[in-house]
Amino acid sequence: MTLMILIFQIAIPMMLIGWLAFLPAASLVGLMLQAMGTGAFLFALARVAQWAVPVWWFPWLYGGLWLVSFVISLSRVRSPLLLPLFPDKPLEWALFALSIVLLGVGSWYGARALAGRHLPPVDIVDIANPFGPGRFLVGHGGSNKLVNGHLRTLDPEVERFRPWRGQSYAVDFFGLGPWGLRAAGWRPRDPNAYAVFGAELKAPCNGTIVRAEDTLPDFEIPDQDTVNRLGNHVILRCSEAEIVFAHMRQDSLSVAPGDDVVVGQRLGAVGNSGASTEPHLHIHAQRPAPEAAPPISGEPLALRIDGRFLVRGDRLNGATN
């Protein structure tokens, strides 16, 4: 995973920016395609990749560098309008083709990522902000698999997904610390090094606690519990929907099954229990599971938090009171 991040979120963006700045195309159409292709590809990376590592503002940095590199490329050409319209050498034609590929790939993936911002064809549950103080980044969220990996559990052909089907439109949150970093280090083993660990969680709706687990351990990174997948968790029934909080901190819960809660009441804190490879909050909405069925196998619903349908890369400020 680290290698993929280094390649796709650092090496490739810097190579594309450097190519545009220092090796501009020698034809007018080629230069325009080079700028459009690199720009489209960088935009797609910004919308598709998780920017918890490196920091969330890297796509904005790359966008600024792309603009500077385009200006530099124009400055290297005394008069762009005097350039030949199309390439006249084999290498230039090869780079011309590369620009077209980048434009096509970037446009397709960028459009798919933007399509993930549309509300899915399921009922929407509106809830209040579930966080206490802090800043949070969406790692998974949205209405297609490109930006929300949880949607894989909608596949009826995969039997092992059926017990988890209720989580299909889940949202995962990382925390943001100083400089927008999610942790003190690249991937420290200690969960306390992560900005989200210990973040306060509050009831986002009036309702009744139907399940609560508080005794499971918080693991060091990247260890996890693949048997008790939810880890420490709370399931809060609000009217006809259930809101599920997973991977909470051991011994942090302030509620128990049967408790009635109101919006803003403390539930517990974010941890790293269950099937979690690093501290984060998993939250989703579902219809109550059938009697004797697994607890998160109910009909999946989509969440809107403080009126926002949150998608990968979005940020949310926690409530201050």
Rank of each mutant, 00 (worst) to 15 (best):
P191G: 13
V262E: 12
E157C: 02
L301P: 07
N317M: 14
G63H: 07
L176K: 07
V158Y: 00
L85F: 13
G298C: 03
T320R: 15
W164S: 11
G149I: 02
P121R: 03
A319N: 14
K202P: 01
F245N: 08
L181N: 09
T153V: 15
S254A: 15
A285L: 01
D126Y: 01
A94W: 07
G198H: 01
L201A: 08
L176H: 05
G313Q: 09
G142V: 01
P222L: 10
G258N: 11
G37K: 03
F86K: 10
D314V: 03
L74C: 07
V55W: 09
V105E: 11
Q9W: 11
A195N: 11
H280E: 05
S99A: 04
L253R: 12
L91D: 09
L83H: 10
S69C: 07
L42D: 07
L137Q: 05
E240T: 12
G180I: 10
A241R: 01
S168R: 06
D218F: 08
G106C: 12
P84M: 10
G106W: 03
V171A: 10
S239W: 12
L103A: 15
R312P: 04
N321R: 15
I72M: 10
G180Q: 09
G180S: 13
L181V: 00
P156S: 12
L151C: 02
W56C: 08
A292Y: 13
P13I: 00
G264I: 14
V227H: 07
I127E: 06
V125M: 08
K202G: 04
L16Y: 09
P257N: 10
L176M: 13
G30H: 02
P290T: 04
G274N: 05
I5R: 13
E200W: 00
I209L: 00
P204L: 03
G132L: 10
S297R: 03
L146W: 00
P130S: 12
S239E: 15
R152V: 08
E299H: 15
V158K: 00
R152P: 07
N272S: 08
L83E: 06
L137R: 01
E157W: 00
A256P: 06
L6V: 14
A35G: 14
I7M: 14
F173Q: 00
P24D: 02
G185Y: 14
S252F: 06
V311D: 03
A269F: 02
P279G: 10
L33R: 02
R78G: 13
L85G: 08
G177V: 08
E159S: 14
L65G: 10
G207C: 06
C238M: 11
A11F: 15
V244K: 04
L42T: 08
R304E: 12
L230M: 04
P90H: 04
G134L: 09
I7H: 13
A269H: 09
N317R: 14
A25V: 09
P24S: 01
L201Y: 04
A111Q: 07
L42Q: 11
D88H: 15
S254R: 15
F58W: 14
L85H: 10
I283T: 09
V122G: 05
L146E: 06
I235Y: 07
W51I: 13
V125L: 07
V147W: 00
L83M: 13
I235W: 01
